[in-house]
Amino acid sequence: MARHVVATVDEIPPGARMLVTVGGREIGIFNVAGEYFAIGNRCPHNGGSLCKGRVVGLVEAAEPGCYQVSRRGELVRCPWHGWEFDLRTGKSWCEPERTKVKSYEAKVEPGEALIEGPLRAETFPVSIEKQYVVIEL
């Protein structure tokens, strides 16, 4: 288990996502209203790249004709067949126990802590003044 610095926070503003490769794995980093989430990029159904999908909310209906939208921006919909994955858990809304992608913990850390700590910034230099997105795997 190691922590990896993958981006500066301003590289992934709210609503945006970034595809990174860590330890040979493609991982999508998503910013949902200031919170960062990291999930495997490959759709477990047929292999679509989730990072290329639309970020959507959860649409539900208590009965026909009565719709409600919640959790705006917290699901990503596969660009191919439309499977929806919860960015918080990696689970598909349909078949959540069977169809899921790996979800990784994503945190924001100040550059100061990163330079002093045992973290690895593999692709770019870390500066004290900035905030970084760090994932663990």
Partner: peptide
């Protein structure tokens, strides 16, 4: 359709 032109979003 949920995606225009019935197309892959990517």
């Amino acid at each position: 359709r949920m995606s225009p032109d019935a197309a892959r979003v990517d």
